[in-house]
Nucleic acid binder design. Structure first.
Length: 701
DNA sequence: GTGGTCAATGTTTTT
DNA sequence: CATTGACCAC
């Protein structure tokens, strides 16, 4: 341990060894803050005799938590039961023990944003409000902002006349469903710790609390931390105001200022030496962020060599940009760069598709982090809804979701009746029984009774069947498998595979956590709704594609940032306020500082939006980088290839032989349409006749 | 009353 | 371009 600490620079060492008062570490990008935190924890355990289970370390994502734990265990060469988790997970843990105090049963459900929107949609309908004025996603974010204290309900009342009513009803329905949304988790956690005995108990229990990514905590999270440590001042927070990119979710840079106010004797240590980036990259990052006015001010320096200039490519179109990126990646791979050392970042998820197409055409293995998350896929959510209905008799949102999926002849009218019944009859099964009696036809009656049977059957199997079999059972007993086959003729198999994957995941989870039966599923469900994009990242030899937000906390030797255009990055929705642009700039700063050795920036002069091309201008952020750091990549120098093939793989002539990643070689029988989206029907030796979109095919002849 | 088909319509970022 | 809503035939 002592030798390890000797490796640290002076500031890092001081941060590890300091325990005299509350500690605020302002850690610039790539300054080794994760190292500092892990060493600090290790030092506490090894040298100061702290009991690991009485240390709480809060991270931003579960992935970061796992990594920190792994590093710690690598350092100490044994299992270390430190509480490493996100604020949300921490609150869930508190709530499982004490939820009754706040009027929730301990087996509560967590509503994800999809559940939340569904519920809001119901409420808007029930209140007869105009869905154009009250779009579920807008209302969802308003509710969130009110809950986490960004806006007051009254101030929102100006824009949304009925918001008070919606807000109240939303919370009422949630509570009746024994459900909490993301914001509730934090609020309830805070409220529990506001109770004198619990505050006493937990603040006595935890001997030290550390918070990573402090700049992205919101007020409520801060209050949680405060109630655990206010008295003893046994707290260390690590953050960088220049990397605060979640203000729209209630993150508050003010927390950094509040910290010094609430803990007047706080010690501040700055980590300004960057170990990650090349000199050139760091200079660019510093120059960009200097344009922000709202910052405490810190200047990073590095001893790393300047390295290669930053590349800039001005593409004529979005297609050309993605071709540039994929062909450059291909060159790198040829030169021996590992795919896992390369990442492509973009501002919005919608940009990923075109990049994917280009990489696929070059035959480059890639993974996308984020986008539509695994657990948000329709088929997964449907199956989980069955599970939830079987587990939680109060989960109305899930019941409504499966009422007519698969189609069983219970449409709008039946749904309305059910909702009427639910107003007086609490409990899904009871309500369904009543529905069976009040429904119009014998056919519908049978349908409802069948549904009740399905739910009962699942419920019965929960304690006995292994998880994989239970999931399989759900898909058969509910007729969901046939539904997929009928509804998704083309790709039902991959969807069904996803469901099987879900079964496997639960099985693994059960073995890892040594849980079974109801407890297993309740635990699993809360874990997956709190899982972040990064949690899904795979190890392996693949190029990584993700949004800039998802890249937070990561690093790659080679980084591409695509779509550096006004309106995209900075995003249009941020342009009307100075604060908005500053947040975009911090976001760009985060993106740039992920790169260790090589950074490639690009933009497109024309970009396709919904179907039509729109011309765009290069991002202001590009002009903020000193030009001597940049080398513009000219088209003709690119990859030594002749100018671009105008329409990629599709030629005017009809293809005869094609190649598909999974199906292999195929003989073309028919082509409908033209270009990338042409439908090609071909005969494949091992798979028979298949119809595939052109862009998934390579033309061989 | 339900389910299939057609048209319109909408894209920030996420625990 | 892909999902969601409105409309009409069963």
């Amino acid at each position: 341990m002592k030798e390890l600490i000797r490796e640290l620079n002076q500031q890092q060492r001081e941060a590890v060894l300091y325990f005299d008062s509350p500690l605020l570490i302002l850690a610039g990008a790539g300054s080794g803050k994760t190292r500092v935190i892990t060493y600090k924890i290790a030092y506490m355990i090894e040298e100061l005799g702290f009991e690991p289970e009485r240390i709480l370390a809060v991270t931003f994502t579960n992935k970061a938590a796992n990594e920190m734990k792994e590093r710690l265990e690598g350092l100490l060469k044994r299992e270390v039961p430190v509480w490493v988790m996100t604020f949300h997970s921490f609150c869930v843990r508190l709530l499982r023990a004490h939820s009754v105090r706040l009027g929730y049963k301990p087996n509560f459900v967590i509503f994800d944003s999809d559940d939340k929107k569904r519920l809001i949609k119901e409420i808007i309908k029930d209140l007869n409000l105009d869905p154009d004025l009250y779009s579920p996603s807008t209302i969802a974010s308003v509710i969130s902002n009110v809950k986490n204290g960004t806006y007051s309900l009254d101030s929102m009342n100006l824009y949304y006349e009925n918001i008070g009513q919606i807000f109240e009803l939303y919370n009422k329905r949630l509570k009746e469903s024994n459900a909490l949304d993301f914001d509730d988790l934090l609020i309830c956690g805070r409220d529990l710790l506001a109770q004198e005995d619990l505050k006493r108990r937990y603040s006595d229990y935890f001997r030290y609390v550390l918070i990573d990514e402090y700049q992205d905590t919101n007020r409520i999270q801060y209050e949680i931390a405060l109630s655990l440590t206010k008295e003893k001042g046994n707290i260390c927070v690590v953050g960088d105001e220049d990397q605060c990119i979640y203000t729209w979710r209630g993150a508050n840079i003010e927390n950094i200022l509040s910290f010094e106010r609430d803990f007047p004797n706080a010690k501040v240590i700055k980590l300004e030496k960057n170990y990650r980036c090349s000199g050139t990259i760091l200079k660019a990052a510093n120059a960009v962020i200097a344009n922000n006015r709202k910052r405490k001010g810190k200047t990073l320096f590095t001893e790393n060599p300047d390295g290669e200039p930053i590349r800039l490519f001005a593409a004529e179109s979005d297609v050309e940009e993605s071709q540039f990126i994929s062909s450059t990646i291909k060159q790198f791979l040829k030169k021996g760069v590992k795919p896992s050392d390369i990442a492509v970042f973009y501002r919005t998820n919608a940009q990923s598709r075109i990049l994917e197409d280009a990489l696929r055409k070059e035959g480059i293995a890639y993974q996308i982090v984020g986008g539509v998350k695994f657990y948000e896929r329709k088929e997964i959510k449907d199956v989980i809804a069955y599970l939830r209905v079987a587990l939680f008799d109060s989960d109305v949102v899930s019941l409504l979701r499966i009422l007519n999926v698969p189609k069983r002849g219970l449409g709008d009218a039946a749904e309305k009746k059910l909702k009427e019944i639910l107003k007086v009859e609490k409990g899904n099964l009871k309500a369904l029984e009543k529905l069976a009696e009040s429904v119009s036809s014998a056919r519908q009656r049978k349908a409802v009774e069948d549904l009740i049977e399905i739910i009962r059957a699942i419920r019965e199997k929960i304690p006995t069947l292994p998880p994989y079999d239970l999931i399989k059972f759900i898909t058969t007993v509910s007729g969901y498998k046939e539904y997929l086959q009928k509804e998704y003729r083309e790709d039902w198999e991959s969807r069904y595979e996803n469901i099987e994957e879900l079964g496997n995941t639960i099985q693994d989870f059960a073995e890892r956590e040594k849980l079974e039966g109801e407890e297993l599923y309740v635990e699993f469900l809360s874990t997956i709704t709190l899982s972040s994009d990064q949690d899904e990242m795979e190890e392996g030899e693949k190029v990584t594609l993700m949004t800039v937000h998802a890249s937070k906390g990561l690093e790659f030797p080679v980084v591409f940032i695509a779509g550096l255009e006004e309106g995209i990055f900075p995003h249009v929705r941020s342009l009307d306020s100075a604060d908005g642009v500053e947040e975009e700039r911090r976001l760009f700063y985060v993106a740039v500082t992920r790169a260790k050795k090589l950074l490639s920036l690009s933009y497109a002069k024309r970009r396709r939006f919904f179907g039509t091309y729109k011309s765009s201008q290069k991002s202001r952020f590009l002009d903020e980088i000193p030009s001597h750091l940049i080398k513009e990549v000219k088209k003709k120098e690119r990859s030594g290839q002749p100018a671009l093939q105008k329409t990629s793989s599709t030629s005017d002539k009809k293809p005869k032989i094609v190649f598909h990643k999974k199906f292999g070689k195929g003989v073309v029988k028919r082509v409908e349409g033209s270009g990338d989206n042409a439908k090609v029907t071909a005969f494949f030796a091992n798979y028979g006749e298949k119809t595939v979109i052109m862009k998934f095919l390579k033309v061989l002849a």
